[in-house]
Design a protein around this nucleic acid. Sequence first.
DNA 1: TCCTCATACTTGATGATTCAACAACGCTAC
DNA 2: GTAGCGTTGTTGAATCATCAAGTATGAGGA
Lengths: 186, 186
Amino acid sequence: MSRERGPDPQPQEPDPPSRSKDQQSEPVGEPRWLTSEERAAWLAVAGMIARLPAALDAQLRREAGISLFEYMVMAVLSEQPDWSMQMSQIARDASASLSRLSHNARRLEQQGYLERTRCPGPGRRTNATLTQAGYEKVAQAAPGHVAAVRHLLIDLVTSEQLGSVRAVAQAVLAQIDSAHACAGEG
Amino acid sequence: MSRERGPDPQPQEPDPPSRSKDQQSEPVGEPRWLTSEERAAWLAVAGMIARLPAALDAQLRREAGISLFEYMVMAVLSEQPDWSMQMSQIARDASASLSRLSHNARRLEQQGYLERTRCPGPGRRTNATLTQAGYEKVAQAAPGHVAAVRHLLIDLVTSEQLGSVRAVAQAVLAQIDSAHACAGEG
DNA sequence: TCCTCATACTTGATGATTCAACAACGCTAC
DNA sequence: GTAGCGTTGTTGAATCATCAAGTATGAGGA
């Protein structure tokens, strides 16, 4: 996830694969490589987005026997007053595809943590509902998970830093959403 | 990746799964749930670490036909003076397991982007070396990738914010490393 | 009525990651 | 030398995610 500078000085190949600007179909002249500050920041973020999910996933598997994604799904449901939510809404809340959620829901159903029921309303809606066992599972896993989130992120930084990180993360999410919307238009 | 508050007010089950503090083997009394500020920050970060890698991966697959991880591996190599590096070092730089790297290296080798050679030195070392085709592949993919990194992160934030994010990410990485080290000790 | 489109969800195949086991090598001790 | 041990790297099986295709349902026309 690095390589944000230009092509490196060629080691043994005297002929760098330089591409003529005029042959580009896209309007890239010389790309704007990252400055050393930007590069350092990006390397740190890249490391974080690669390793933080893995660390949280490992903690949950170790201490509760569920994956981070399973936890997220059940946690979202546990916060609803009726422990119940529409599949596509869960997918949005958990930042996942409907397909991934569906496969996971099947496994959670087999484990007795979840039930799916077709909604009587309009459209082809399905609600996922946490069972009592499912609720107990999240409730049991929650303290350890929150402790891990504190230990690996929250308790490491000042509230100012946390505010900055929040603003940045929200900007990133908004940009990803708008990029999706643009792709859908074209 | 939410549920950082305490157990929710019980909906239809009158009996919350409250756990007696004294039966805990670990020294957790009532866990320190997240404040609303912390919770909002964590939700944003959780969304970012879930969706930013996917967005960058999608861009590279679309425009260069390689995965984000393959790009990272080749990018790390391309920055070495001899396009060459020891497997375990690549794994560290790319924040990945040696197993994952090994499988990916085999595929890259089959595609002609990489070569692996046993080192003559001490230990059972293997060096991965970028081929000319591999170098050209990263060089061709780099501008689009950097543009995506700019578009989805760097260009969205002030340099102060970027500095904060860098500090936070580095703290997170250090903490994950130290947690690993502790686990190794016990 | 029937056709098409759009949304919501599921499923099976394909490909990638993980996990545990193993192989290769050097080091140290006896 | 040879028996353990730590490091490094590979491999096969199981697990999981993604992708494309399919099902189910309602809306909007012709």
